[in-house]
Design a binder for these strands. Structure first.
Length: 222
DNA sequence: AAAACGGGGGC
DNA sequence: GCCCCAGTTTT
């Protein structure tokens, strides 16, 4: 490891990625984009997406929203029917149960509305920091950083942060990353992580920022 | 810190 | 067929 390596220039990094993903706009979860989705739909979509590929999640969300787009409608549908509709997203029995609990709680505690604070979102069953931040960004237009495994892995791989947990990554990015880059960095790293900067075998030969990456030649690539 | 929770897709 | 992938809760 060279000690003369220069610090990562985050402006150049973001600009290079943006040039490489010119059509990428807005969605941290792809299928949420440009549909005028309500905060409840965004929350439900995000729950469905956890540890599940976007294509699978999109189908499940479409089937569910065809009949239920509000907490009342989800409750009316019933847990078994919700489970049937969202299959085959990962952990679908647990998610069906959570969606019932969340809908109940939104009605009982939040007058049927999705709350717009981190604390209130985290108090919902099945909602962790990733989900809460995603709802804040996509549903309420807040400046938040939604750290999924892509953001966590790549932020560390390029040496921009050195952290153990996603929460530590979130806090480090809030300190280091200029606020004007938050959403863009977030969106681009998800796209980048899904396509090129894979966990085990990143496609370094096609990577637009490989020359800025201290892990090139260290991470097993192809 | 590590297991549990269910599935899809790539190889 | 086996390994990789993706958050939150619980032990």
């Amino acid at each position: 490891m060279s000690r003369t390596r220069k610090r990562l220039d985050i402006d150049t990094f973001v600009a290079r990625l943006a040039a490489a993903y010119p059509l990428w706009r807005a969605p941290i979860i792809t299928f949420i984009a440009n549909r005028g989705a309500t905060p409840f739909e965004i929350l439900v979509s995000t729950i469905l997406s956890l540890r599940t590929k976007d294509e699978v999640t999109g189908g499940a969300a479409a089937r569910l929203f065809a009949t239920a787009r509000t907490p009342e409608q989800v409750l009316a549908l019933g847990e078994a029917e919700v489970a049937r509709l969202i299959y085959p997203v990962g952990f679908y029995p647990t998610k069906a149960k959570r969606l019932m609990e969340i809908s109940r709680m939104l009605l009982d505690v939040h007058r049927g509305e999705v709350p717009d604070t981190m604390a209130a979102l985290l108090a919902l069953p099945g909602v962790g920091r990733k989900t809460a931040n995603l709802v804040l960004v996509e549903g309420f237009g807040r400046d938040a950083i939604c750290v999924d495994t892509h953001v966590h892995r790549i932020s560390n791989r390029i040496g921009y942060v050195r952290t153990r947990t996603p929460e530590q990554t979130e806090m480090a990015l809030r300190r280091k990353l200029p606020r004007r880059h938050w959403v863009r960095y977030n969106e681009l790293l998800v796209a980048f992580g899904q396509t090129l900067c894979r966990p085990q075998s990143p496609h370094c030969s096609r990577c637009p920022v490989s020359d800025m990456c201290p892990r090139i030649g260290v991470t097993r690539s192809r």
